[in-house]
Design a protein around this nucleic acid. Structure first.
Lengths: 184, 184
DNA sequence: GATAATAGGGAATGCTTGTTTCCTTATCAA
DNA sequence: TTGATAAGGAAACAAGCATTCCCTATTATC
């Protein structure tokens, strides 16, 4: 079932919510129509489950990228580099389910809207945490406004996923190099 | 006709492409089904026309915001402030047609994909231009990498529109205050 | 080994969609 | 005024959609 859900994640990332038909879903999940509706109440429920699975996976990926840093600044740098890496090429063109949900559904679907909000807040707290860690370990100056900088960095990460959907190239070292000025 | 197109822009911004039915469109444009199809080949053509109209309007708004700055740095600051202002509140929740198109259509619709790409490049060149102006007039240090910084700022602006779709608040002075560090 | 229960599959259903067709009502030329 | 032309509107249409229903294996139970 989890493997089927992973396939659902892929379709939703590729096509978005509304452009994904039950037919697309069953084909990708290799399940018959009836089986999908036996496992989930409706298409919306499949999407919610896929969303949850996607955010769990991404959080895990981001966390492990951060872990490779020796101090707050390096951990944050690794997080940003990881975001750029996931926004590039085919993976980038596949898109982020959080960004997709925010843009396509958030305003009209309160349930999805709430999940998107919660996820963004979690990511923001995650980034703000690294800034504060860096300030404690001396790798980031104390005068940096942790919360404002974290919110702007959320904008950067979400924007990366938008740009990654297009044909514009994204150079991790260069972009993150510039972005790290925000911690000066 | 232009006033009808403005109404189409609004619906597409609110609901996105796929979630907007011809019924939604005719209701908003106050035109009958037949009339829409007499003016446009199909739904896709309506969207393309709306997209063009939206980008023209936004470019004009951004240009006039920039014009109020006395040097390159101030013009760029005004552009960023204008972006935040348009990403806030009801206007922000209405969303940006470029971001929406990038996320929802870009990957699967080559025509829209090309327009999104072109628009992002235009915006990026616009920002890079202000950076170079600032370097010429002395308001921005010469060591700033104009192109890399411009691309990162595009990510910021697109990200602002994503976050603006959610319930997270956006404080223009604070966010732009932090972002201006990129020009240090 | 027979039976109950469950999981999976595919056809059927009703609804919504984008699109077309045709009819009515203005607009304008002669 | 009359005839032709364009514009606008409503109903009709086929296709595609999400969802339901029912049938068929397979598993587990006694």
């Amino acid at each position: 079932m989890d493997t089927a859900l992973d396939r659902a994640v892929r379709v939703f990332r590729d096509r978005g919510y509304h452009a994904t038909s039950i037919g697309d879903l069953t084909a990708a999940m290799r399940l018959a129509t009836g089986s999908v509706y036996k496992a989930f109440r409706d298409k919306h429920a499949v999407f919610l489950a896929a969303f949850e699975r996607y955010t769990a996976l991404r959080q895990e990926q981001t966390r492990s990228a951060a872990a490779r840093g020796k101090n707050g600044r390096e951990r944050l740098r690794n997080v940003l580099l990881s975001y750029v890496a996931h926004s590039r090429g085919r993976e980038g063109r596949r898109g982020c389910l959080v960004v997709g949900s925010a843009v396509e559904l958030s305003a009209l679907d309160p349930v999805v809207g709430a999940r998107v909000n919660a996820q963004l807040k979690t990511n923001e707290a995650f980034i703000a945490g690294f800034i504060r860690e860096g300030q404690a370990d001396g790798s980031i100056p104390g005068h940096v406004a942790a919360d404002d900088t974290a919110r702007l960095m959320i904008c950067i990460t979400q924007g990366l996923r938008v740009v990654g959907k297009t044909r514009l190239s994204l150079d991790g070292d260069r972009l993150v190099g510039v972005a790290m000025k925000l911690l000066a």
